[in-house]
């Protein structure tokens, strides 16, 4: 059977690409520290030596629209073009092309449907920064085949938080039952507290640092019970109007497992939002390479 070699949960900050590549006067003062943290985070994936990446993200009104809105969608295509005109315009993101792992897509769809998730699918999916940001930060070579999984954290009515957790648990079970000997990493991105298009946006910190502190604790300690007891669709409005993206972190907690303490935790307090990076090694922590260490 396939091996789940790494579970990674991350914020997806579309400004990283521009900040990390800017030079001279255009380079923001926080860029060097950000690059250092991303480089260390990247090593946690590299060390796991994955063959395939299952990528969990959320379309930001690019290909998925209100006339036909799926709650959970699996891409099943041989290739995925990536990034959109408005992401090039606002964030300077490059156009990308990623290979698809179509047999794993088919497996997740068939088995996921049979496990009780009425998954939508797409045979021609252009993916956006919720998936390309972690490619840029964690695997900039963009050389591994992917299975994209989109969740609706964006266009209400949304699925309940517990449904995200359940889907995460199921994704893990399915990967671990996938025939073959591939090494699979699951990478999912979401948000901590976040405000977009509202009065608390673009402040000196994220809109709710206390929520962020508690969220990092829930995720890092694998405290799914505590998280699920406090987080509801209604409660997520309070930390910021785009905080429902936190449910993708909850999905990744479901992949990692109840009580699973993250092997790697890091954060970076930026203007507008807090960055947060987590890695779990379900199959055991890989041997320490020469290029870095895992700091729990």
């Amino acid at each position: 059977m396939a091996k789940l070699v790494a579970v990674i949960a991350s914020t997806h900050h579309p400004f990283y690409y521009r900040a990390s590549t800017a030079q001279g006067e255009d380079r923001p003062p926080f860029a060097d520290e950000w690059v250092r943290k991303i480089t260390a985070f990247r090593e946690t994936l590299t060390r796991a030596r994955p063959d395939v990446l299952v990528m969990v993200g959320s379309d930001h009104f690019h290909q998925l629209w209100l006339d036909n809105m799926p709650q959970f969608l699996v891409g099943k295509a041989p290739f995925y073009d990536a990034n959109w005109y408005n992401e090039e315009r606002e964030f300077g993101l490059p156009r990308m092309l990623l290979r698809g792992q179509e047999d794993l897509s088919a497996y997740l769809l068939r088995e996921g449907l049979d496990a009780g998730f009425d998954l939508a699918y797409s045979n021609e999916l252009r993916i956006d920064h919720s998936i390309t940001c972690p490619i840029i930060t964690l695997r900039p070579e963009a050389d591994l085949p992917i299975v994209p999984i989109y969740t609706n954290i964006f266009a209400p009515p949304l699925p309940q938080p517990k449904r995200f957790v359940q889907l995460g648990r199921t994704i893990r079970q399915l990967i671990e039952s996938w025939p073959g000997d591939q090494r699979v990493a699951v990478i999912g991105t979401g948000h901590l507290s976040l405000e977009l298009g509202g009065p608390r946006q673009f402040g000196e910190h994220g809109p709710d640092p206390e929520f962020d502190r508690r969220a990092v604790e829930w995720i890092g300690s694998g405290d799914l019970a505590g998280c699920l007891s406090e987080v509801t669709l209604d409660s997520l409005h309070a930390p910021g109007n785009a905080t429902h993206g936190f449910m993708d972190f909850m999905l990744m907690m479901g992949v990692a497992g109840d009580g699973a303490k993250a092997d790697y935790v890091d954060t970076l307090d930026l203007f507008h939002t807090m960055e947060a990076y987590f890695t779990w090694y379900p199959d055991g922590v890989p041997a320490v390479g020469e290029q870095g260490t895992v700091a729990a």
Binding site: H60, G197, G198, Q201, F202
Partner: peptide
């Protein structure tokens, strides 16, 4: 939808302000 409004208005008016100035005025 606040994301749609913000994204489009940044595209139209960010150019008329200092960096992040439009976003902060918007807030």
């Amino acid at each position: 939808h606040p994301f749609l409004t913000l994204t489009l208005f940044i595209a139209m008016f960010e150019r008329d302000h200092e960096p992040l100035g439009f976003q902060q005025e918007y807030a």
